[in-house]
Simulated assay, not measured.
Amino acid sequence: MRVLGMISGTSHDGIDVAVVDFDLGSGDGGDVLTGRVLHTASTPYPDELRARLVAALPPAPVTLAEVCVLDTLIGQCFAEAAEAAVEQAGPVDLIVSHGQTVFHWVEGTHARGTLQIGQPAWIAERTGAPVLSDVRIRDITAGGHGAPLVSVLDGLLLGGHEGGAAALNLGGISNMTVVRGASLSAYDIGPANALVDAVVSARGLNPRGYDEDGRIAASGQVDERLLAVLLDEPYYGLPAPKSTGKELFHLAYVEEAVARAGTGPSDADLVATLTELTVRTVARDVAAAGVDVLVASGGGCRNPVIMDGLRAALPGVRVSLSDELGAPADDKEAIAFALIGWLTAHGLPGTAPGGTGARAARVLGTLTPGADPLVLPAPLPAPPRSLVLRR
């Protein structure tokens, strides 16, 4: 079954896509799912649309009219990206669109709701393929956080590692999945690129809106007084499972922390300090997990200041990229949503309750029919025990 996975993450810079051809075979001791990654790509949002999206994100006030407009414009962008992927890789049986998260409602340790926009009907109309969307909310209704959903992929990829392994995603928010055999736990650690991107964009430090190759951070010095204020954030002390987003970690949050610290760092020192915040929070949690392997993905793993900082802080841990497991670091989340689509199509849960905190695993998503009558494969009695990805 050929599935196209699509997502724009918390960095809201564009749309990542992955076409994966899944085949279920039999391996020693159980079923093994093979996924051949046929195509990956990234499509940036048009500058005007990205600016409009950023202006509507929390804590900014926004009208329902603007939400409606953005839902359409982002849906059309997803449709264009899907059409381009199909032209490159050939027809697909199903498209999974995560869309763009614009609000994730969390009160204390409980998620109450989540909103992803990017109207899937535009994708179905443009490509003729059925579209699975709105994939997070069913987990939330079952008491989970709806995140990190990538943990279902992590469990299948890392379950065979003896001694325990962790998968780390460094997007706008950092999240981690810890896998020990059949045991899995996952949660959002805190900001990865979100605060750095907010400062870089607001202060015009890079027209691309992020610290490319960590150059700004490398040119600055960590402001330890400000870092101490940032590390005092109550979220870090909450028990897992937990989730967070830009509803908490945004530009005003940085400005308030600087005011409390009373230090007035330079632009480079501020970026260096926010980058070190990511290193410290991630390294602390990885060390507490007691794993000896850490597999990283997401845009932040292309930042050598972050990766070098993690390796220095975790001398007993082998830190590598998810590329080694067949999931390119920049495309892993898109591959994960393609997997969720395959699971849903076969009547299988797309969540790991240990990762989201839900009462039980749930089949995910809402289906929008394509041009032809919707025909799903026969349901499977049990999920695969592992996944092997190939290019």
Rank of each mutant, 00 (worst) to 15 (best):
T43Y: 15
A18H: 05
E107A: 11
L64M: 13
A345P: 11
L343E: 01
D269W: 03
H250R: 09
T366E: 14
M1D: 03
S201G: 03
S174Q: 10
R385V: 15
A313K: 10
L73V: 11
T72D: 15
T43H: 14
T278Y: 06
K332E: 04
F337M: 11
A272Q: 01
R362S: 14
L195F: 03
N169I: 08
S201D: 11
L238D: 06
F337D: 04
D285C: 07
G90I: 14
V54P: 02
Y253E: 13
L73A: 14
G163N: 03
A111M: 08
V375G: 00
G155L: 01
A382M: 09
E80K: 02
P373D: 14
E212Q: 11
Q221N: 08
E333A: 02
S8F: 11
P377V: 04
E83F: 03
G118S: 08
P315G: 02
H98R: 05
H39C: 08
V375Y: 12
V295A: 04
P44A: 12
G144E: 04
T34M: 07
V295G: 03
V200R: 01
L149C: 09
I140M: 00
L314G: 02
E233H: 10
L321S: 13
A124K: 13
G299M: 04
V150E: 03
A378Q: 13
L248R: 14
L314A: 06
K246S: 12
T43A: 15
T351V: 10
V178H: 07
A166P: 09
L157R: 00
W342S: 10
A217E: 06
G370T: 13
S219M: 09
D331T: 03
L184E: 13
S174I: 07
L49N: 07
E48W: 09
D31V: 07
L380S: 07
S185G: 14
E276A: 09
T244Q: 05
G341P: 02
V279Q: 05
G160A: 10
R391T: 14
A142Y: 14
D269A: 04
G143F: 12
R225N: 06
D21C: 08
R225E: 12
W342A: 08
G245V: 10
A371I: 06
T263C: 12
R136L: 09
V375E: 14
G355M: 06
A272S: 09
V17P: 05
N193W: 10
F103M: 04
V19Q: 02
